[in-house]
Write a protein that binds this DNA or RNA. Structure first.
Length: 257
DNA sequence: ATTCCGGCAGAGC
DNA sequence: TGCTCTGCCGGAA
């Protein structure tokens, strides 16, 4: 009896025979390095599976505190590395970190889903906590999304600073709200404009030429010329005006209602 | 502006 | 296991 042309017993044996590629110590230890980034130097710890812990140098007291925090979270030994994972430094310099492998094995499925979804938010853009909740299929677990992001072990690589409150305001942040806002400004999010819009009850922007409505930081929203820009308090209000949600930033599910 | 709860995942007991 | 508490929220009062 075969499955997809393969003998299932042999396949199972084959998996058993797959030898770990590295020595025991390499699998147990994590390595750490200090690397520059668009947001200042970072301490970065990594296993063979990817980066598993990150702290901005500015946010901890020093190497010792970094190591202590790492151990509290990961419960495994840490040692200095000769060099960072390949590609990391380049990715950090360009703030294009999607391709960097992260090791989130020690987290729950829910936490991983939240972090993976946060990773899909492009640099320079933001999405609300409620958006993340909806994207992972738990639209009412908004607060739990906040809790999961609060425990993000790899800030910057998982850009939890791009997840904001519903009004676009940067929420709380591991290293303080001010630090989160600094990261957003560093990647050119116009925090002041978002704040200004929110003051006049505008949380979404649409174009009257396309009849598409976006989150204000969506790259499509940024391209709407002033005469065609229209603000909305809610996606519902936009829909009533004949607009449909942007397929890029997905301010709401596509369907009707 | 402030305050109050609903929702719900995780942690601790 | 089954509570109970807590928390980078959100929307209503």
């Amino acid at each position: 009896m075969t499955v997809n042309g393969r003998d299932p017993v042999l396949a199972a044996l084959g998996e058993l025979a797959e030898a770990p590629p590295r020595g025991l110590a390499d699998r147990v230890f994590s390595d750490w390095v200090r690397v520059p980034s668009a947001f200042g130097d970072l301490y970065v710890a990594f296993s063979g599976q990817g980066v598993n812990f990150v702290r901005p140098v500015d946010a901890v007291r020093g190497e010792e505190e970094f190591a202590a925090e790492f151990h509290r979270e990961l419960r495994r030994p840490l040692r200095a590395a000769q060099q960072p994972p390949s590609g990391l430094v380049t990715a950090l310099r360009r703030n294009r970190t999607r391709s960097v492998r992260v090791d989130l094995r020690h987290l729950t499925d829910f936490e991983r889903a939240v972090l993976e979804t946060a990773r899909t938010i492009p640099a320079g853009q933001t999405r609300p906590y409620s958006w993340v909740a909806r994207e992972i299929g738990s639209p009412r677990a908004v607060r739990s999304v906040g809790s999961a992001l609060a425990r993000n072990p790899v800030p910057v690589l998982v850009p939890c600073h791009r997840v904001t409150r519903a009004d676009g305001e940067p929420g709380e942040y591991v290293f303080g709200a001010e630090f989160g806002e600094r990261l957003l400004r560093a990647e050119d999010v116009d925090v002041d404009e978002v704040r200004e819009l929110a003051r006049s009850d505008v949380f979404y922007l649409g174009s009257d030429t396309t009849n598409i409505v976006c989150f204000p930081t969506c790259h499509n929203a940024r391209r709407i010329s002033a005469p065609h820009r229209r603000g909305f308090r809610s996606v519902d209000a936009a829909r009533k005006a004949g607009y449909r949600p942007c397929k890029h930033c997905r301010p709401a599910l596509a369907g009707t209602a």
